[in-house]
Design a protein around this nucleic acid. Structure first.
Lengths: 138, 138
DNA sequence: ATTTATACATACCAAAAGGAGAGTGACTGT
DNA sequence: ACAGTCACTCTCCTTTTGGTATGTATAAAT
């Protein structure tokens, strides 16, 4: 069972006390936080499932998203290199979005967390019920 | 390369169109979102590194957290069964926190995302610089 | 009698996030 | 002439989030 931040081991097998470099750590944490954002996850999912899509199509497939958040999230994902944005200079405008290789790899990485959540959600729900019961008791 | 939500396959190898059950999906998404929260990640990390800790110790080890968020986050983690909270009925009060097995497993699951972020952060930074450059150009 | 220590709860307030809705530009079809 | 289409942008407003500051309980120590 490993920690959240993978402990590094030297070739000799001695454990190096997670001295990863605070700057990188901060960056990585920021990336994770952003990636785990509700809309980012949802859009990642629809693009993974449907391949290349246009702006309004993503909006329809992403239940409940506002236009503002759609634009904002897609921009952010483009900025970070997760999606590619191809503008066709026609009228009315046509813009196509799809996942880059980096986007696919991100999706794959999150797969593990999904599996964990799917496997353990029953335990979490049970814990919540137990917690509720304990607190009703006093 | 798999999707964010692991596609299920029947024994015949046919792909079942991720019809997982929207209720479970919503729950799982909620769990992920919460787990990826800044303070939750940090506290998970210090508890994984240091084992059992008291309230104020966690506060000191978790750089920049306010008392309010510490209480709030710990309660949430307790509620979900990630940490156990043992109250010693002494004065002044003594409360000890530690990760449960579920907490450790969560930490382990997130390890994959950390590895991905560490491996690919350079690509993300490069994408950001490229994006900046593109937008300065117009 | 007053201070100290610990683990909180509570109230108040500023900042940030995010939704709703209207506006824009340019061409195409009626 | 005018409505329709698409991919936005912009403004206004509400909700949420999170920090600060203060209060509380209890016994031991000074």
């Amino acid at each position: 069972m490993q920690g959240i931040k993978p402990s590094m081991r030297s070739p000799l097998g001695r454990e190096i006390p997670d001295q990863v470099d605070p700057v990188l750590e901060e960056l990585v944490r920021g990336i994770i936080a952003q990636v785990a954002d509700k809309w980012t996850m949802l859009i990642l999912e629809v693009l993974e499932e449907h391949g290349t899509l246009r702006f309004t199509q993503i909006g329809k497939l992403t239940e409940g998203i506002s236009q503002k958040m759609l634009t904002q999230t897609l921009r952010q994902m483009e900025r970070d290199g997760f999606v590619s944005r191809i503008v066709h200079p026609v009228i009315p405008p046509k813009v196509e979005y799809s996942l880059t290789e980096l986007g696919h790899s991100l999706s794959a990485a999150f797969c593990g967390v999904w599996e964990w959540a799917a496997a353990r959600h029953a335990d979490i729900e049970a814990a919540r019920r137990a917690f509720e019961a304990r607190n009703r008791a006093d």
